[in-house]
Design a protein around this nucleic acid. Structure first.
Lengths: 208, 208
DNA sequence: TGTCAATTGTCAGTGGCTGTCACTAGCCTC
DNA sequence: GAGGCTAGTGACAGCCACTGACAATTGACA
């Protein structure tokens, strides 16, 4: 935040992001035009595109943070943990620090509304899944390095991550469509679903 | 293929689809405009949009078939198989009938090129993942019915499917970036990766 | 063959996004 | 502290995906 120029820039970006998320979540993503957002901040449409490469990028600006947060959480796990355990702990413990990190940029409540919107808007959901896939790849590489295996020849890093990500996606979806959108709820749900993976895979469900 | 009108329509659609895939795979998805496709078939741009709701829909017209094929394969599995086993067999055995079904519409080789393009084009990959998610949901419901459980209260159907889909996605990705794009290769890779899930999840990789 | 309905082309318009150019406001040097 | 430099911006023109409306054409069927 050195110079006046930089502060001004930061303020414009913040205002654009805030206005975008606010409009998206109240009016809907598609129903909000870039002109609307620019008008709300009183800048030209061209200026919006100087801060965000696309309308979509604005929609995911906060997600970007949470993704980075999670990647770091995995990297910080003690090396004695088995891969699956490391992922589990990173997610479950990661939920806490997240709210703080988010609230530095936008109100947490706005973030939650935005998350719901992403899940329920086809284009955004598609983009979200692709982004998740990129995160998965990064995490697979971290795991591979941790365990001293080569991602190019050993499929296990990508496999654990893909399996884990699958469970998380089911969890997130369930959470975002449910009533209780609190942090405690998602943590509890994550743990429960992860514990269900074994039973779901191994057993014959009918012979219980 | 009753009336002349219907035959003509079918021919136009085929020509549009063929031209679209051909242009996409040679020139790239984004670099191909809808006008290009329409011009190649010598119809108006408006006509293209009467056959395909969007440029994207044309890109996925063949995938649509293969998805339906797979869903049916799962539905047709004998009821005594455990869920994971049913999914495994459906995919592994499903690869065969697929080539025939595809070749009825476009050359298999064009389909393969298109598949590669989807994997390597961000927008298409995103769309592909979202579509896969919809397929997952349908299959989860099929499994739930088979096993007599309720998707709304029992997370296991969605969990198995998500885990399975994760493995398939890793497999497809590996396959599409590799040399051997044959049916035998993908079948072998699928089996191998599915067998690796257990080891990847349970063991501590370093203590082998 | 004439009527009806399905199919198509034309045209105009919206919205996301990009390139260009001129202008203004903050910054920095002399 | 006056001037030049440059980052940031607005205004404008243009591309492309997509849509609605209306008119023209073409196959179906009596």
């Amino acid at each position: 935040m050195e110079t006046l120029r930089e502060r001004k820039k930061q303020r414009t970006r913040d205002a654009l992001l805030r206005a975008a998320l606010e409009l998206f979540t109240t009016r809907g993503y598609e129903a909000t035009t870039v002109d609307d957002i620019a008008a709300a901040v009183d800048v030209s449409q061209r200026t919006f595109f100087r801060y965000f490469a696309s309308k979509e990028e604005a929609a995911f600006a906060v997600q970007e943070m949470t993704e980075a947060h999670f990647v770091e959480a995995v990297r910080a796990r003690p090396p004695h943990e088995a891969p699956m355990q490391a992922l589990r702990q990173a997610v479950i413990e990661g939920w806490d620090g997240l709210s703080e990190a988010v609230s530095a940029v936008v109100p947490v409540e706005l973030y939650l509304r935005m998350y719901r919107l992403i899940e329920s808007t086809p284009v955004l959901l598609a983009a979200h899944l692709r982004r998740s896939m990129e995160v998965e790849e990064r995490i697979a590489r971290i795991l591979a390095e941790r365990e001293g295996v080569d991602v190019r020849t050993d499929p296990r890093p990508r496999l654990v991550v893909a399996v884990f990500a699958g469970v998380i996606r089911v969890t997130e979806r369930q959470w975002s469509t449910g009533e209780d959108m609190g942090v405690a709820a998602i943590r509890e749900l994550t743990a429960r679903y992860l514990d269900q993976v074994g039973p779901a895979l191994a057993e014959d469900w009918r012979t219980r």
